[in-house]
């Protein structure tokens, strides 16, 4: 196990986090949810940037308080609200990173900067959003990290840049000792990358499911009022009122396809599921 959060709680008064998450070796785990759902708070708890009120966090099999700088060398981090050293140049980072990480590969870092058109001589503060995002990921990938913690690494990027970033992550995952915890509010980005998903809303994990299960067994029923009244609701996990009737999220799509052939059932995607879970009424 690379990372384990067990009942991690943080109370901000107006917002409460209460979550449990696991990231295994060889797996990419997605954390999805709307803005303000608690994704960044979760990431900050993992990185010790905030102090949870209770619960346990383990990284590389160690309690978070026992994590040493040597352990952190095995960690690569991208946080959407944290920029690198903006007032320096990408080439200035070489000596800093070399002093920080024993496994830092200068050749690889420079090669990747060239490959993704990152100017080495320009101040980072003058980079475009896309360049900054790519540089952050290049840094996270430059030192043979075992675990990547990526909070919205694709935020603010166009579709081409998002694909480039996702390709970098696929290449990284060719080594199955590694794992990734990644969040995005564009969950379609993650469908082709993640092995499992945690859906978070109001600081609470509302669904944890493997991607295959989520995409093959979950579905959305479009029901009229009459259909809603008569249908067997045991596999409906959330319901959202609509003008025409109801949208119902099920985790047993096949059951309804077999038993209610007259009902309109959509495959849906993770974004659709989040909308029903967040805006609708959960079972």
């Amino acid at each position: 196990m690379l990372l384990k959060l067990e009942n991690v709680k943080k109370d901000y008064g107006t917002f409460k986090l209460d979550c449990s998450i696991e990231v295994k070796r060889g797996q990419v785990t997605g954390l999805v949810g709307s803005n303000g759902a608690g994704k960044s708070t979760t990431f900050k708890s993992i990185l010790g940037l905030i102090f949870p009120d209770s619960g346990d966090i383990e990284m590389f099999g160690k309690k978070l308080n026992d994590i040493t700088p040597e352990d952190k060398e095995k960690l690569g981090v991208v946080l959407t609200e944290a920029n690198t050293f903006d007032y320096l140049r990408a080439k200035d980072l070489v000596s800093i990173l070399k002093a920080m990480y024993k496994s830092f590969s200068e050749t690889d870092y420079i090669a990747k900067c060239h490959q993704y058109k990152i100017p080495l001589d320009k101040n980072i503060k003058d980079f475009s959003t896309g360049m900054k995002a790519k540089l952050k990921l290049i840094i996270a990938l430059s030192h043979d990290a075992e675990l990547l913690i990526l909070d919205e690494p694709t935020a603010g990027l166009d579709v081409i840049m998002r694909n480039e970033l996702l390709d970098m992550l696929r290449e990284y995952m060719e080594d199955d000792r590694r794992g990734i915890l990644i969040s995005s509010h564009i969950s379609t980005d993650l469908e082709g990358l993640c092995d499992d998903f945690y859906m978070i809303s109001n600081g609470e994990i509302i669904i944890h499911e493997e991607t295959d299960v989520l995409l093959s067994e979950y579905g959305i029923l479009k029901l009229t009022d009459d259909q809603y009244d008569t249908i067997d609701k045991q596999y409906i996990i959330a319901t959202k009122r609509e003008k025409f009737g109801y949208l119902c999220l099920t985790n047993q799509k096949d059951f309804y396809q077999e038993n209610y052939p007259q009902v309109a059932i959509e495959k849906g995607n993770i974004d659709d599921f989040i909308i029903i879970m967040v805006q609708g009424e959960r079972k």
Binding site: L49, K72, L75, N83, F85, D86, Y87, K125
Partner: peptide, 16 residues
């Protein structure tokens, strides 16, 4: 300078 644009979050995520 460390504090600019969330720089401290980046620093504290490094091996320190």
């Amino acid at each position: 300078y460390d504090d600019i644009n969330g720089g401290m979050l980046f620093i504290l995520s490094l091996p320190t």
